[in-house]
Design a protein around this nucleic acid. Structure first.
Length: 878
RNA sequence: GCCGCCGUGGCGGAAUGGUAGACGCUGCGGACUUAAAAUCCGCUGACUUCACGGUCGUGGGGGUUCGAGUCCCCCCGGCGGCACCA
């Protein structure tokens, strides 16, 4: 295959066009203040998730999304938009540092080399990026503004009254002390149990743990002092404002579940023989009468205080077991409940009963108050625990009307509700569904939802608890101890942190000889003692930011990448944010993989909202429309991986079939959002299609020499059928691009090409129209053919990519006669050619006259006649 | 366990509730060629029929409808996410 004659000379003209676009800056996008900027043009911002420039280069998954956005971007240019379609590199990150440790090369060196490879590969695919806007998150000028934004977050607090971030300077003006202010900043220091990896030498976010463990690194739980970002303050807004976005429902749901809002109440329990109280959070305050014991997280701070002498040894042993157990697979913990009694009792505020207090690792310190009231009758976990340890189970909710009988209510020692007399005497399961309150004093007879409300009112009026909304979302652990990340722009003086002045940004990490983890949680930068200890006695913060920091705002920097005074000029921000009223997001279309559903996409929304609150951006959301491209599997239907040996390298495909073929194939495989396997035969198929287009314009001889085809003539199209196909294509391709339905657009262009192949004379105008709509998909081939056509016919040599999208002529679509389907009782029996606007009576007469129809209607009466104009008729007989 | 997505020929996939399988791949046949490749033309869901045609067919079972791949209910299978969140 490799040395056979290429069906069209893509290896000559693809580099030629790429070079020309580059030197002529064809895809340069002028913004406000730039030469050639036209403020009247509507903007369109189409964004790819920028790649992490790994050492293995571009993967065929990258060009899938990139081609889709490229087609949209080129199409929008041709329909009169000022299109922002940029590319860059998410170039900080742990793998670069790991590689540096292995090879001794500085991460800056390997990163630069990797970026070079990525850039070359991206350029070889002919994407219409404005390369003048290229950025890398490791660029000092970029780091500068990442740090600047961090300082905005650091310098802000969340104001509950306005539900927005505001500068802490407001609090200073109100006379707040430093300690008070530091306690409410959106960036703050906290002692918290974190995942620490000694051999990586850094803490990891919860969601990173599995990945690195999978690569053989050890990870352990440790309490450490870390920088956190107060994303939890935005939990409600992050949920609510999803409604304004054009995102797939699945992704919205994923974010909603991740944030995890629960509505319920906090309830205070007095501790028997002690003065203090313990607060719990519950979503079922209506079951308070059924709370028969209490459970605290093993790490709960009050555990040592309440534990009795007899129980102390067991409690301490259990706590110790839990802290080491945290590193074990959580799946194992799920299977079996464990816990110990503290010896203490709490008083159920609603009935004064003394209930035992246990500690158990099924209660987590990080959620709610770290303590629960256990209602084993109506909670599966409590039920399991109570059964194991012989604790009392009380039924306080009965099955109500319309509740399925399979959900049985239970009471220990009694016949479970819903069972026949003589049924099992022991409880089978907890009844967790809503029902009717029983054995619950003033709640008796109330349905669950009402009982909740009544109980909360009662708690509030007796000062025993209150309505409470709880989120699963935790504050964002934002510091890392590694080298290849942005240093925090902070210094410590007299035990307090303070911001560096803007003039000292960017603060770059000092050169280090050795990045090897020391095994202690000390940040690697502490090794650079000269850098850390400043002459005036202040000490630099030595933590660095996680890789997410750079990707939280790169889409903003693209709007104004060269700005040295500000992260993004107001004029540029306003222009690129100008959206219809109904839209809240800046970027019109964002395409990328699902793997970022809850991390990058949540973090970026959070940063954007802080910037919005502080007046730095004018939209409340970053990304209006989001589309997830589906994974491309290997030819064997498995996920591509080196170990399986099923990885397809885009470079090889480009070499063999050309960039246009790769682009077109990836779009023809199937719907963008679907998971689909690679098939090299499919690449050949689209390559053949492109060769057919080539041969409309060129006659190719046995040796591969080509000359312009005499069939192409500058004459009006007299072939009505051909004209109709062309205009159907113009219509469908435009509509399909808008719908991101690229595979069907391509199939229509194939139909159109087949039509051109079969005619004796190829009318020039219509042929150029086909080339124009094919241009966003196969930009090199179409420009090459068009250039030659323009030369032959002495036409202006304007690039197709700078031309206008052709409008279709509705007149050309009209057929005078149409095929009408005749069904009898819903089954196809005949087809009739009728005038396109034939009326019901005419059609009915024709249908009834059909011999084939008669075979199925003879001897039966016509009960109903369905007429769908232009489509079909259905004769219902019986 | 919970949540979400998806099940259509040998394969990738098309189908505003209205002709199931567009387009492409594969396979088969033909043309061109000394021959092959490439290219061009035709056929290609299953069963059945000499043929015209007929019957079945969108994971399975029910339902709504003149008409269901599409809408509703139940079940089965695959993929992804979350996973003691009180």
């Amino acid at each position: 295959m490799s040395d056979h004659r290429k069906p069209f000379p893509f290896s000559d003209f693809e580099p030629k066009w790429q070079a020309r676009w580059e030197t002529e800056k064809t895809f340069r996008t002028p913004g406000p203040g730039d030469e050639g900027f036209d403020p009247a043009k509507p903007k369109y911002y189409v964004l790819d998730m920028f790649p992490y420039p790994s050492g293995s280069g571009l993967h065929v998954g990258h060009p899938e999304g990139y081609t889709a956005t490229d087609i949209i971007g080129r199409y929008k240019r041709m329909t009169g938009h000022n299109v922002l379609h940029p590319m860059g590199y998410d170039s900080f990150g742990l793998p670069a540092e790991q590689y540096a440790i292995k090879t001794g090369q500085h991460p800056a060196v390997t990163t630069a080399a990797n970026i070079k490879t990525f850039r070359r590969q991206l350029k070889s695919l002919g994407f219409a990026y404005d390369w003048g806007r290229e950025i890398a998150t490791t660029d000092p000028e970029y780091v500068r503004w990442t740090q600047w934004i961090f300082l905005q977050i650091y310098g802000a607090y969340f104001c509950e009254e306005t539900n927005t971030a505001r500068p802490v300077s407001e609090l200073e003006a109100k006379g707040w002390t430093r300690d008070q202010i530091d306690a409410v900043r959106l960036a703050f220091v906290a002692d918290t149990p974190v995942w620490w990896s000694p051999d990586l030498g850094t803490v990891l976010a919860n969601e990173e743990v599995e990945e690195w463990k999978g690569k053989g690194h050890t990870v352990e739980r440790r309490p450490l002092r870390q920088w956190m970002l107060r994303i939890t303050k935005y939990a409600q807004r992050l949920i609510d404002e999803l409604d304004t976005l054009d995102w797939p429902d699945g992704i919205k749901l994923l974010q909603k579940n991740w944030i995890g809002r629960s509505d319920g109440a906090s309830v205070k329990f007095q501790i028997s023989k002690f003065k203090f109280e313990i607060e719990v959070f519950t979503t079922r305050p209506d079951t308070l009468f059924g709370a028969t014991y209490m459970v605290l997280a093993p790490e709960h701070p009050l555990v040592p205080d309440i534990t009795t002498a007899e129980c102390r040894a067991a409690v301490e042993a259990y706590q110790k077991a839990c802290s080491s157990k945290s590193d074990m697979d959580r799946g194992d913990l799920n299977k079996d409940k464990s816990g110990v009694f503290t010896g203490a009792h709490a008083i159920n505020p609603v009935n004064g009963e003394q209930i035992p207090i246990w500690i158990a690792d099924y209660v987590m310190m990080g959620y709610g108050t770290g303590a629960i009231m256990a209602v084993p009758g109506h909670d599966e976990r409590d039920f399991e625990f109570a059964n194991k340890f012989g604790l009392e189970i009380k039924q306080v909710v009965a099955r109500g009307e319309g509740i399925l009988p399979s959900s049985r209510g239970v009471t220990r020692g009694e016949t479970p509700l819903g069972l026949e007399e003589g049924g099992m005497p022991t409880p089978l399961e907890a009844y967790c569904a809503p029902g009717i309150a029983i054995n619950s004093g003033f709640l008796d007879g109330l349905p669950t939802s009402e009982a909740k409300a009544v109980m909360i009112d009662w708690l509030e009026s007796n000062h025993l608890g209150k309505r409470r909304i709880q989120y699963k979302l935790r504050d964002w652990l934002f510091s890392r101890q590694r080298y290849w990340g942005e240093p925090f722009p902070l210094v410590w003086k007299d035990g307090r942190h303070q911001a560096l002045p803007e003039s000292e940004l960017p603060l770059l990490a000092p050169p280090l000889e050795d990045y090897k983890p020391s095994g202690s949680p000390e940040p690697i930068l502490t090794k650079a003692t000269e850098w850390v200890n400043l002459p005036d006695g202040t000490i630099r913060e030595t933590n660095t930011m996680p890789q997410w920091a750079g990707s939280c705002w790169y889409y903003l920097r693209y709007c104004d990448p060269g700005n040295t005074n500000r992260f993004l000029a107001n004029e540029a921000e306003t222009y690129w944010s100008a959206n219809p009223k109904s839209a809240t997001g800046m970027v019109d279309l964002y395409v990328g993989g699902t793997e970022h559903a809850v991390l990058h996409l949540l973090y970026a929304r959070f940063w954007h909202k802080v910037l919005f609150d502080l007046g730095h951006v004018t939209t409340p959301e970053p990304f209006q429309k989001l589309v997830n491209q589906g994974l491309i599997l290997g030819e064997d239907g498995q996920k591509m991986s080196k170990s399986r040996g099923n990885v397809v390298n885009p470079d090889d495909v480009v070499k063999e079939y050309g960039a246009d073929s790769l682009r077109l194939y990836e779009m023809f495989m199937g719907p963008l959002e679907q998971v689909k396997p690679w098939q090299m035969k499919g690449v050949e198929g689209v390559s053949r299609f492109l060769a057919r287009v080539w041969r409309i314009a060129f006659e190719v001889d046995q040796d591969g020499n080509h000359q312009f085809s005499p069939k192409v003539q500058d004459v009006p199209c007299t072939d009505k059928e051909l004209l109709r196909v062309v205009h159907e294509t113009l219509k469908k391709v435009g509509e399909d691009i808008e719908k991101l339905s690229f595979n069907t657009a391509i199939s229509q262009m194939m139909i159109c090409t087949n039509a051109f192949t079969q005619v004796g004379v190829v009318p020039l105008k219509e042929f150029i129209q086909l080339l124009t709509v094919l241009n966003p998909f196969a930009p090199h081939l179409t420009e090459e053919i068009h250039e030659c056509v323009a030369a032959v016919f002495n036409r202006p040599a304007q690039l197709l990519s700078e031309g206008q999208w052709p409008a279709y002529d509705p007149e050309a679509l009209v057929r005078s006669e149409i095929e009408l389907v005749v069904q009898v009782n819903g089954k196809l029996r005949d087809r009739l050619m009728v005038a396109k606007d034939a009326d019901e009576e005419t059609v009915k007469a024709l249908a009834l006259a059909s011999a084939r129809v008669k075979e199925h209607t003879d001897g039966k009466t016509l009960r109903k006649f369905i007429f769908v104009p232009g489509k079909l008729v259905n004769l219902v007989v019986g």
